[in-house]
Amino acid sequence: MTGPFLQVCQRLQMPALMRLKLNRKLYRPAPPHPPGKRGAPRKDGDLFQGSRPETWGKPDASWNGTDWRGKPLSVQVWQHLHVQQARQVEVTVFRVLREGANGTKRDPRKSWFVWVGEQELAPGEVASSYRYRFSHEHSYRFLKQDLLWTKVHVRTPKQFERWSLVVASAMNQIVLTRSLGQASYCPWERRRDRVTPRQVRRVMAGILSQVGTPARVPKPREKSPGRPTGATGMKAARFDVVRKPKPVPKKPRKRA
């Protein structure tokens, strides 16, 4: 979670549920500036940090219930917080406590989440909503690796947007084809009741050849007349490459 990312989410009106580091510093709204007091008003209020329970204060809301396994689940909510890099973006922090968890890194008992969005997220939906993150990550990986979403060479954002629609259409066709149950397995893959999009993609060529297409048969190109005499092509627009700055080495601390 970074300040620029929160600003983009607010500008695009895109809600997001993210993990929160235990030592991430957030702040409450700044108190009003006392009249007659000299100096600039405060920009940040009191500190809120998950690793320091004394900074939590009383939660704005709490919820108790059960998770998808039927184990006890409790959620605490703190609202109207922000980070220093994006003070105009308010976020909500959730502390999820699962007593039936194993306590490992993959299955922790305590988890911290942050929510950014105009609509409020119910405390009981935090744990179940975050589980969709894994399917989203695998979907993006499938779009990049198998459908070549980011491998296309285009020059303008409009061209990439058109290519993204083509990739999305191909993804929809693969999802609809999963109901047919046809798949191609590699020797190391196990056969399961539910096939994966990658296994379906391997047999899409045979399925599409049987289904056909509503498009007309392409006409022969014949011999192209080429460019007229005296015509000159326009050079493609060039843009500077945005590179990350080199990290500044930290100076060693002097020992007293």
Rank of each mutant, 00 (worst) to 15 (best):
R178S: 10
L121H: 01
V175E: 12
R162Y: 00
V96P: 02
K223M: 11
R255G: 11
N102H: 08
K219S: 14
R162E: 06
P32V: 12
K254W: 03
R190W: 06
K25S: 15
R106K: 11
M234G: 08
T55I: 02
V91E: 07
T55H: 05
L47E: 06
V114Q: 04
M204D: 02
P197D: 08
P29C: 08
E118Y: 02
F134P: 06
P32Y: 01
E137W: 11
D146I: 11
G57H: 07
L22E: 15
D107T: 05
P31N: 07
V166H: 03
L208F: 13
W149N: 08
S62N: 09
Q159A: 07
P34I: 04
S209R: 15
R87N: 00
E125R: 15
S129A: 15
M234N: 10
P53H: 05
L20Y: 09
I174R: 04
E222Q: 15
A183K: 03
F5Y: 15
L20P: 01
V89S: 01
F134M: 06
P197Y: 10
E120M: 07
G233S: 12
Y130D: 14
L6H: 04
G124K: 06
R178F: 00
R98C: 08
R28L: 05
R191W: 03
R192Y: 05
D44S: 10
D146V: 15
P187W: 03
T55M: 02
Q210C: 13
L17W: 00
G230N: 06
G100E: 09
P72T: 07
K223G: 08
G36A: 03
S111P: 07
D193V: 01
R141M: 01
V175P: 00
A256T: 12
R141F: 09
Q159H: 07
A40N: 12
K254F: 03
G39P: 08
R191D: 03
W63A: 05
G57N: 03
H80Q: 15
V93N: 01
P214A: 02
F160R: 10
W149D: 13
A237L: 13
R221N: 10
Q10D: 06
V77T: 03
R19H: 09
A61M: 07
T177G: 06
V175R: 14
V166R: 04
M171P: 00
E54F: 01
P197F: 10
M14T: 13
G226T: 04
G233Y: 07
K223H: 14
G212L: 04
G206A: 14
L12R: 14
V211D: 02
P214I: 04
A16C: 15
G233M: 12
G50C: 11
K251D: 10
W149G: 05
F94G: 00
Q182G: 04
V154F: 10
G39T: 09
R238G: 10
V175S: 10
R87V: 05
A231S: 11
G233Q: 09
S62Y: 04
D193L: 01
V242H: 07
W78F: 09
V93L: 06
R243E: 08
W56L: 09
P53S: 08
G206F: 02
E90P: 05
V8R: 09
W149K: 12
P245L: 00
R109S: 12
W68N: 12
Q76S: 07
Q79H: 02
L148S: 11
V242S: 06
Q199Y: 04
S62G: 09
E99G: 05
A205G: 13
